Computed example of a mutant assay.
Amino acid sequence: MKSRAIVFACLASSLFSAAASAESTTDTTVALAQSLPEASAAELCKAGIATVMDRPAEGIEIGSSGKLVSLNYRGEDGSRWRFMCKIKGDQIVWSSLGGAWRHDESMTYAVKGENLEITGVSPDGANKVRSFALAQLK
């Protein structure tokens, strides 16, 4: 009976530890987002989509924002391109509207003074780095 109690105690301790670790990760993400008031999730997503789609940020419209940001732009042929985006830590994660989240193209951001720098790595390993004035993303 004692050995069952010990096993249970170890199991409970492991579960508590895993839950605390997950909570800690969430707290870190929230703290990071709160420490960057000069760049909102919508602005980060706008810069990210501009980078990955090689478009000017001024032509990208923000539809709605919150935990998920919807964005769109018109192509040269008049077609509308729609995207969803979310921020996870220093990562910008995106998808086309109704599509899967694109984890094969990683994008990170860094706020450097009055500029936002986006670094993207495509599936073939090519790097894209773009810098945006924060005022340009409003």
Rank of each mutant, 00 (worst) to 15 (best):
Ile6Cys: 02
Val7Tyr: 10
Val7Leu: 09
Phe16Gln: 12
Ala18Pro: 07
Ala19Ser: 03
Ser21Gly: 12
Ser21Ile: 09
Ala22Glu: 06
Glu23Leu: 07
Thr25Arg: 08
Thr25Phe: 09
Thr26Gly: 00
Thr26Pro: 04
Asp27Gln: 15
Val30Ser: 09
Ala31Phe: 00
Ala33Gln: 08
Ala33Glu: 04
Ser35Cys: 03
Leu36Trp: 10
Pro37Gly: 13
Glu38Arg: 09
Glu38His: 05
Ser40Cys: 07
Ala41Lys: 13
Ala41Cys: 06
Glu43Lys: 03
Glu43Ala: 11
Leu44Met: 08
Cys45Ile: 03
Cys45Leu: 05
Cys45Pro: 03
Cys45Val: 05
Ala47Gly: 01
Ile49His: 01
Ala50Glu: 12
Thr51Trp: 01
Asp54Thr: 08
Asp54Ser: 13
Ala57Met: 04
Ile60Tyr: 11
Ile60Glu: 15
Ser64Phe: 11
Ser65Met: 15
Leu68Ser: 13
Val69Ala: 02
Asn72Gly: 12
Asn72Gln: 15
Tyr73His: 09
Arg74Phe: 03
Gly75Cys: 06
Gly75Met: 07
Glu76Phe: 02
Asp77Ile: 00
Trp81Ala: 14
Trp81Thr: 07
Arg82Gln: 06
Phe83Trp: 12
Phe83Tyr: 13
Met84Phe: 10
Met84Pro: 05
Cys85Asn: 03
Gly89His: 05
Ile92Leu: 04
Ile92Lys: 06
Ile92Arg: 07
Ile92His: 04
Val93Ala: 08
Ser96Lys: 12
Gly98Phe: 08
Ala100Thr: 14
Trp101Gln: 09
Glu105Leu: 15
Glu105Met: 15
Ser106Ala: 12
Thr108Ile: 09
Thr108Tyr: 06
Tyr109Met: 02
Asn115Ser: 11
Asn115Phe: 14
Asn115Ala: 10
Leu116Cys: 02
Leu116Tyr: 02
Thr119Pro: 04
Gly120Glu: 09
Val121Tyr: 01
Ser122Arg: 13
Pro123Lys: 14
Asp124Lys: 15
Asp124His: 14
Gly125Tyr: 03
Gln136Ser: 15
Gln136Ile: 04
Leu137Asn: 07
Lys138Trp: 06
